[in-house]
Design a protein around this nucleic acid. Structure first.
Length: 343
DNA sequence: AAAACGGGGCC
DNA sequence: GGCCCAGTTTT
């Protein structure tokens, strides 16, 4: 679709971003610094860092000659500090391997630490006008929607297909504007949520828009199969009352009141004797219930126990409540489910 | 709390 | 070449 590139170029000319601090230069060093800062970091956060960094380290030589500490200081607050270390190391390699200049050969650019295929292509395109394809998260989203490509774009087969597509779409001229347009479209209109399709230059061509799939595409990363865990919850009863235990404030169900837990096959009577000082008699286990979290499935087997002679005092962090009150308390959903079943 | 993200590292 | 991770922000 040759249409795509020309429409994108025209759109970027009229509606794209043109005044960012790293635009309107062909200095590969300046473009490189900006591209690295823009990895996983928003434009608004990058701007002040970019300006301070470029003032202190205006050239490859300035960066290569600096102490790593000072480079990191100028990065402080941007996060992903390996980017800064790679930047420093790459500048030093330019000095030793490339006579202190920024390499123009595409493979040489990509061989520098911290520069992968997409970042190398962005630099080669903006600084040297080379016809190289970028493919970052924004571009993958645009492609998935416009061309109706389903499947998670991180999947090797899909990603490979997208690289082929990205290369096939490259225009023969205006590569810089095209590359910028791809970035601008993904960043400003074809956003992850609530894309602004009414303003999009691709609205007549976009498969996702035509088929109402903009929320489905790009396909999300497949969830890995849920691991299975199992636990026993002790339903310690004294007449109408049951014993709740406060969970630690961190971790699952942090701070909620819950049923005491035990591992399968343990001696439950012995456990409550040692943990709570209670004598109790085992009942028949209740029907298990399964609770699904995002990352695992938990099978809960409720084990009822009837206490024999409840002491006046109760251990700290525990609470006797009537079944009715317990259900109203701050308890985990599956605990509420299993108590409700018993009402 | 979970997903998303580009590059690096490991087989 | 394929798979997974580290580290951080966004939803």
């Amino acid at each position: 679709m040759q249409n795509f590139s020309q429409k994108l170029i025209d759109w970027q000319r009229q509606h794209g971003r043109h005044t960012l601090p790293w635009q309107n230069t062909r200095d590969p060093y300046a473009i490189w610094i900006s591209e690295i800062m823009l990895q996983q970091t928003q434009v608004s956060a990058v701007i002040p860092y970019y300006q301070r960094f470029m003032t202190r380290f205006p050239t490859i030589a300035a960066l290569a000659g600096a102490h790593e500490d000072e480079v990191l200081q100028h990065w402080s607050g941007l996060g992903y500090y390996s980017r800064a270390r790679n930047l420093h190391e790459a500048a030093r390699r330019m000095v030793t391997l490339h006579q202190g200049t920024f390499p123009q050969n595409f493979e040489d650019i990509q061989a520098l630490p911290g520069i992968g295929r997409s970042t190398a292509a962005a630099i080669a395109s903006f600084a040297f006008g080379q016809r190289q394809a970028i493919l970052d998260g924004n571009v993958k989203r645009v492609f998935a929607r416009v061309f109706g490509i389903s499947g998670w774009p991180g999947q090797p087969a899909i990603e490979k297909q997208m690289w082929v597509l990205a290369e096939s779409l490259l225009p023969t001229e205006d590569i810089e504007r095209y590359t910028q347009g791809l970035m601008d479209l993904g960043a400003t209109l074809c956003t992850r949520t609530k894309p602004d399709c009414l303003r999009c230059p691709m609205q007549d061509d976009c498969v996702a828009l035509r088929e109402s799939l903009t929320t489905e595409l790009p396909s999300p990363k497949p969830r890995k199969a849920l691991s299975e865990k199992e636990t026993v919850m002790l339903v310690i009863m004294d007449g109408e009352d049951i014993l709740l235990e406060k969970r630690p404030s961190s971790g699952i169900w942090g701070g909620l009141w819950s049923l005491p837990e035990a591992a399968i096959g343990e001696d439950y009577a012995a456990i409550i004797k040692s943990r709570f000082g209670l004598e109790a008699e085992l009942g028949q286990t209740w029907a298990p219930l399964t609770h699904t979290f995002t990352h695992f499935r938990l099978e809960i087997t409720p084990q009822p126990l009837c206490v024999i002679g409840r002491p006046a005092s109760q251990p700290s962090g525990t609470l006797w409540l009537s079944l009715d009150d317990a259900i109203e308390a701050a308890i985990p959903t599956p605990v509420r489910t299993l108590l409700t079943r018993k009402l």
